[in-house]
Amino acid sequence: MTNINSISGNTKVYAIIADPIHHVKTPAAMNDLFSARGEDGVLVPFHVAPEDLPTVVAGLRGIQSLEGFIVTVPHKTTIVDLCDSVTEAARVVGAVNVVTRTKAGKLHGDILDGAGFVAGLRQAGIEPKGLSAYLAGAGGAANAIAFALAEAGVKRLTIANRTAKKAQDLVERIAASFPAVELSVGTSDPSDHDLVVNGTSLGLRPGDALPCDASKLTSNQIVAEIIMQPAITPLLAAAKEVGCRVHQGLPMLLCQIELMAAVMASK
Results as ranks from 00 to 15, higher is better:
197 V>T: 10
154 V>K: 03
157 L>E: 03
182 E>Q: 13
179 P>N: 01
163 T>S: 14
177 S>A: 13
161 N>W: 08
155 K>P: 00
154 V>M: 03
173 R>M: 05
183 L>I: 08
164 A>S: 14
163 T>W: 03
156 R>Y: 00
162 R>G: 12
174 I>D: 02
164 A>R: 15
189 D>V: 08
190 P>V: 12
195 L>Q: 15
168 Q>L: 11
192 D>N: 15
195 L>D: 14
159 I>H: 03
179 P>C: 05
179 P>E: 00
197 V>W: 05
183 L>N: 04
187 T>Q: 07
153 G>C: 10
188 S>M: 10
183 L>E: 02
178 F>T: 02
179 P>M: 04
196 V>L: 05
154 V>E: 04
191 S>D: 09
165 K>C: 01
167 A>N: 12
168 Q>H: 12
175 A>N: 07
161 N>I: 00
195 L>I: 15
152 A>S: 14
165 K>N: 09
161 N>C: 08
167 A>Q: 12
172 E>K: 13
185 V>D: 01
184 S>H: 00
180 A>E: 07
165 K>E: 14
171 V>H: 03
167 A>K: 07
182 E>L: 02
172 E>R: 09
163 T>E: 05
169 D>M: 14
175 A>G: 06
158 T>M: 11
181 V>L: 06
164 A>C: 08
174 I>A: 06
180 A>H: 06
173 R>W: 02
152 A>G: 10
172 E>I: 01
165 K>T: 13
194 D>H: 12
153 G>N: 11
192 D>A: 14
194 D>A: 07
157 L>A: 03
180 A>P: 00
185 V>S: 02
196 V>N: 08
171 V>M: 01
197 V>M: 13
187 T>D: 12
195 L>H: 15
188 S>G: 13
166 K>L: 07
188 S>P: 01
161 N>L: 06
197 V>L: 15
164 A>W: 09
159 I>M: 07
161 N>M: 07
166 K>V: 00
176 A>M: 08
162 R>S: 13
174 I>R: 07
160 A>G: 15
183 L>G: 10
184 S>G: 03
187 T>L: 07
177 S>Y: 09
190 P>F: 02
177 S>D: 08
175 A>V: 04
170 L>E: 02
176 A>F: 01
173 R>D: 00
195 L>S: 15
190 P>M: 11
169 D>R: 14
173 R>C: 05
157 L>H: 09
168 Q>C: 01
186 G>A: 00
193 H>N: 14
153 G>K: 11
187 T>I: 10
152 A>V: 12
178 F>K: 05
158 T>H: 09
152 A>L: 07
159 I>N: 05
194 D>I: 03
180 A>N: 06
173 R>F: 02
158 T>S: 13
177 S>G: 08
176 A>E: 15
193 H>A: 04
